[in-house]
Amino acid sequence: MSAGKKLLITEDWCKGCGICVEFCPTNVLEIKNGIVTVVDIDKCIKCGLCELRCPDYAIYLEEIENES
């Protein structure tokens, strides 16, 4: 279903507003040194709520062809 998606971060674009951290339903993210950081990727359900509301396009889900 959502196994073919990967959570990616463009660190240079993150302004550390914390919107993604607040809206993540499974507490995958944290702001560290002013930038979003993945603290527990195993908990990620790939819902995409972070991508939907990231005003800086710094966090998103990308389809991956082969998940190994």
Binding site: L8, T10, D12, W13, K15, G16, C17, G18, I19, E51, P55, D56, Y57, A58, Y60, L61, E62
Partner: peptide, 22 residues
């Protein structure tokens, strides 16, 4: 590299934008 949607619709060389954090 940003998401497909951003790559296809925005001028990525002009990003990040100047809007404030949040």
């Amino acid at each position: 590299m940003p998401s497909q949607l951003v790559r296809d619709n925005l001028r990525t060389n002009k990003l990040p934008h100047i809007w404030c954090a949040g």
